Amino acid sequence: MAKLSFRQVEAFRAVMIAGTTTGAAEMLYISQPAVSRLLGDFEDSVKVPLFERQKKRLVPTPEAQILFDEIERSFIGIEKLARTAEELRAFNRGTLRIACMPALAHEFVPRISQEFMELNQGISMTLQVRGSEQVANWISTQHFDIGLSASGVLDPAIKTEPLARSKLVCILPPGHRLKNKACIEPHDLEDEIFISLGTEQSVRYKVDDVFEQAGVNRKMLLDTQVSHIACTYVLAGSGVSLVDPVTAISFIKQGLVVKPFTHFVPFNYNLTYPAARPVSQLALDFSKLLKTRIKELSDNSNNLFKLA
């Protein structure tokens, strides 16, 4: 195998994360042709097929995913070392690193983070937004201090505790025919254009099962991996959806109609911490503030959001 360079590996990692050479170029602050050249050199070096070219996107092969997983572990170690050195230079350990699922990252966690920094002058915070699976991976490798995720992961490297137990709510565009109905039932959405959460999310299958059991047909024309994008589609009049309540409530001020849904589709918010080390006082204090604010949100939500 030809000799690999760090720059080739870096370009491959960026393409895997961004999905396109253009996005990778923006991440690395280099030109798109430079990324393509580095990626080509990397493929020549490893001598296994890494991508299938489909239109403008690069679809990773299983071999590419295996390489990426191995590279990601190495990068996490390098980034952790660099961060520790930076903290030593600044004589500052007042840093809180949070990995958060998109459902809480749209408005809720940024708002709480600002409040927390005002209460704790001089600290710094990092917020990275990823899916629940990646959040769990980062917590298990001690890359972050706190994780916020939807799924409970059985991993001895992770400590998990519930932040809130809730259920999905129905969201409608302004002026929708059901806007005055107190509670939405599955048959109310017969033949509606329905914006689904993508198949990568387990809650998608729970929602589909509710409508299948009720014998209700929906027009399945749109899906997205992120609940706040579903809210944006609905707000624009593209259809209706079921999403988590914290995200939905943050869109009410923009005119989104949010209603309880009769069938219970659970959606849980979990706090996770690395199990291999004690939880820092900063992390404990931030978690306490999160619990207080999410309870207040539940109490003030006019029965849209009930904590279990």
Rank of each mutant, 00 (worst) to 15 (best):
Y29G: 08
I30Y: 05
S31I: 12
S31M: 12
Q32W: 03
P33C: 09
A34Y: 13
A34L: 08
A34C: 12
A34W: 11
V35D: 04
R37I: 14
L38N: 09
L39Y: 08
G40Y: 13
G40W: 06
D41G: 11
F42L: 10
F42Q: 06
E43A: 15
D44Y: 00
D44V: 02
S45T: 11
V46I: 07
V48C: 03
V48D: 00
V48P: 00
V48Q: 07
L50M: 15
F51K: 03
F51A: 10
E52K: 06
E52T: 01
E52I: 14
E52N: 13
R53Q: 11
R53V: 15
K55W: 13
R57F: 09
R57A: 09
L58D: 04
L58T: 04
L58R: 10
V59F: 02
P60A: 01
T61K: 03
P62N: 05
A64L: 08
A64K: 00
A64N: 03
Q65S: 07
Q65W: 04
Q65D: 07
I66N: 03
I66M: 06
L67G: 00
L67S: 01
F68R: 01
D69K: 04
E70Q: 08
E70R: 01
E72V: 02
E72Y: 00
E72R: 02
F75V: 09
G77I: 06
G77R: 06
E79R: 04
E79G: 01
K80M: 14
L81P: 07
E86K: 02
E86F: 00
E87V: 00
L88G: 07
A90W: 00
A90Y: 00
A90Q: 11
F91I: 09
N92D: 10
N92C: 09
N92P: 06
N92T: 05
R93K: 06
R93Y: 09
R93A: 05
R93H: 03
R93S: 07
T95A: 10
T95V: 14
L96H: 03
L96Y: 04
I98D: 08
A99W: 09
A99F: 14
M101R: 03
M101F: 10
A103D: 12
A103W: 03
A103R: 01
A105F: 01
H106R: 13
E107R: 13
E107N: 13
E107Q: 10
E107F: 05
E107T: 13
E107M: 08
F108Y: 12
P110W: 02
R111H: 10
R111I: 11
R111C: 14
R111F: 04
I112H: 02
S113L: 15
S113M: 15
S113G: 12
Q114M: 11
Q114S: 12
Q114I: 05
F116R: 01
E118S: 02
E118Y: 00
L119V: 00
N120F: 02
Q121E: 08
G122V: 04
M125S: 09
L127V: 14
Q128D: 15
Q128W: 14
R130Y: 12
R130K: 15
R130W: 11
G131E: 10
E133I: 13
E133N: 07
Q134K: 11
Q134D: 11
V135T: 09
A136W: 00
N137I: 13
N137L: 13
W138Y: 14
S140T: 01
S140K: 00
T141D: 04
F144W: 04
D145C: 12
I146R: 01
